[in-house]
């Protein structure tokens, strides 16, 4: 696939156009990447596709090889793997807190101890997620902006 970048005037609307013979997984992946860079992710719920603002997502979990986006009001399945989302969203305040989970640091209300060096993150949605001991160091560094 050839990549062309065209500079436009300030008044024109920016657009990423993908010209392809078929909408393959690769094309969907590129489209989803562009959306995630703009602060939106695609998710499927009840066989319908939705565009979810990244800032609305409380946490992301991988369950049995599937990835789910949890907002305060719904759950959406994402086509991405958790490690791909980790890479895409690390600049959007998302952090890995256990092997199958990323959390939006802006959605954490409080952090509580949870035995054995682990912690519980209480989210604004009222849900509680476990911060695994092996990810606490990374959490401390992220909160300190390191």
């Amino acid at each position: 696939m050839d990549v062309r970048i065209e500079q436009i005037g300030k008044k024109e609307e920016e657009l990423v156009l993908i010209r392809c013979r078929a909408v393959t997984d690769e094309v969907r992946e590129i489209a989803a990447f562009v959306k995630s860079r703009q602060g939106r992710l695609s998710g499927v719920a009840d066989a319908k596709q939705y565009e979810i603002a990244v800032s609305e997502i409380c946490y992301i979990e991988s369950v049995d090889g599937k990835t789910f986006l949890y907002t305060g009001s719904g759950v959406y399945e994402s086509a991405y793997r958790i490690y791909e989302l980790e890479e895409q969203l690390k600049s959007k305040h998302f952090l890995r807190i256990s092997k199958p989970m990323l959390v939006n640091l802006m959605k954490i209300q409080a952090i509580q101890p949870a035995f054995n060096g682990r912690f519980t993150a209480v989210l604004h949605s009222g849900e509680k997620v476990i911060i695994s001991r092996s990810y606490v160091k990374a959490l401390k560094a992220a909160l300190k902006g390191e």
């Binding site: 802006m106 954490i108 959490l139 401390k140 300190k144």
Partner: peptide, 9 residues
């Protein structure tokens, strides 16, 4: 952690 979280947010 809560103190750092508050500052971060």
């Amino acid at each position: 952690l809560n103190r750092d979280l508050e500052k971060f947010q």
